[in-house]
Simulated assay, not measured.
Amino acid sequence: MSYSVSKKFANMKPSATREILKATSDANIIAFAGGSPAVEAFPCDEVKKLSAEILEENPVSALVYGISEGYEPLRKTVADWLKKRNNIGKDDDTVIITSGGTQVMDLTTRVMTSEGDTIICEEPSFVGSLNCFRSHGCKLKGVPIESDGMDVVALEKTVKETPNAKFIYTIPNFQNPGGTTLSWEKRKEIYRIAKENNLLILEDDPYGNLRVEGEDVPAIKTLDEDGIVLYAGSFSKILAPGIRVAFAVVPKKIAKAFTIGKQVSDVHTAVLNQMIVDRWFKEYDVDEHIDEIRKIYRRKLNLMCDCLDKYCPSLEYVRPQGGLFIWVKLPDNVPMTDYCKRLVENKVAVVPGTAFMTDENAQCPYIRLNFSTPSDENIIKGVEIMGKVLKQY
């Protein structure tokens, strides 16, 4: 029979990151294309212990259906931790537990937009979120990022030219893929622009706990006196990505709509996984764990930057202060797509910059490198290969 795919999906392209990652099934490929935390940062022994305790003490409680908003003890744990650590959350906010951070993007778009509405995004931006927005039939308007985050002059102009915009999407800390951190001054400006134009802000912060140098910048959500900021966070980068436990902090006035959206999406996040995260907070020092994994990322980031400077001096990049990625600009004489293909032929996988553009047909002379997943040995070897391939041009 013939199949008719919905209009929303018919023109969508597969995630470039996921397609390139198929090549990494080859054990000989050096993968700079992923986005996973360093495996040495996983608290494996702790998770094994906590899982055994839960399943020994009361297995049924972990294996039954849960409530859509999330496991209640974990919701309180997250709310208390965010308030203490980041001053995030007010009396008129509530925490909803989600199945991974991208589900927050999905629920926000599902609940707060209609097909044909526009979402204003940083340019470039996380391909997973962009494809999520596209899947709901939304149009995308990109605003360029600068060394200190989104260009707020361009943002204000874009907002005025886009009457059907519903929210501004930003990754404020160690942006994916750009690696930039949004300055405090710009965070205040984005909040002002959103408030004056009756827009929401979706603040996606999966990397904020991975700062390796510099000072923390308060979240846009800390400014929120008007209930216009939706804050997304995740345990994928500080605990383990496969557990798929993340959260949204949303105004209580729209929490019911988000709960319904969750019910029609996946009913609830896995209860056992939520219980593991909750017990992890209660039995271990999570803040101390974060301090320890920051040491891992500091070493790996410095190593990759040192290798880029040594083997690829013609490449341009802004050294990030944390996160998992380095956004690298190729020389004018090096065609980006061809370079990415030649790297794969030489057993190195990177992500082409075009994957992160709001206009999928736009030209982009950048590539994204991930330093958290590969071993130190492969970082050195892979960047050296990048340099050798560059010399072919």
Rank of each mutant, 00 (worst) to 15 (best):
A362Y: 03
K252E: 07
I54W: 08
P59Y: 04
G382T: 09
I293V: 12
V245A: 05
N273Q: 11
T94L: 04
V264H: 12
I385C: 09
T77I: 02
I168Y: 09
I201A: 06
L82F: 04
G387D: 09
K139S: 07
E19F: 09
S51W: 11
N302M: 01
E345N: 13
S99P: 04
L140R: 07
S125N: 14
S265V: 11
K310E: 11
P374D: 01
K282R: 03
T373H: 14
Y339M: 00
N198E: 12
K221C: 05
D306Q: 05
Y366E: 02
N87F: 05
C132H: 13
I243D: 12
L74C: 05
G137D: 04
D266E: 09
C138I: 10
V350W: 12
T259H: 12
L210P: 00
A23Y: 15
I228T: 05
R244P: 05
E189S: 09
N378L: 08
S2A: 09
S36V: 10
V245P: 02
H136Y: 15
R342D: 01
Y284L: 00
K7P: 08
M12F: 11
E19V: 07
M336Y: 01
L202W: 13
A38W: 04
M105K: 01
G128V: 03
G323T: 09
P335G: 03
G35R: 05
F281C: 05
A52L: 06
A33C: 04
S61G: 06
G35S: 11
V159T: 13
M105D: 12
F356D: 08
D306T: 01
A270H: 08
L308A: 00
N11L: 11
G178H: 11
K8R: 14
L239W: 06
M150V: 15
E360C: 05
E203P: 00
Y3R: 14
E288S: 13
Q274G: 01
K381G: 12
I385Q: 14
Y207A: 01
K83G: 13
K329Y: 11
G214Q: 02
K295H: 07
M12Q: 14
L202F: 15
E196M: 04
G149R: 10
P251R: 04
P124C: 06
N87H: 03
P177H: 04
T109D: 02
K388C: 08
R187G: 04
R110V: 00
A248E: 11
K252S: 12
W280H: 08
D338S: 08
L199H: 02
G208K: 14
D376L: 15
I296W: 13
Y366C: 02
K262G: 14
I20Q: 02
V217Q: 13
L272E: 00
D80E: 07
K347P: 03
P313G: 11
D338R: 06
I171C: 15
Q274K: 02
F235T: 02
K90R: 10
S236L: 15
V267G: 07
I120V: 11
G227F: 01
P218D: 05
K7Q: 13
R368A: 10
L223R: 00
G323A: 10
G323K: 12
N302R: 07
C364W: 08
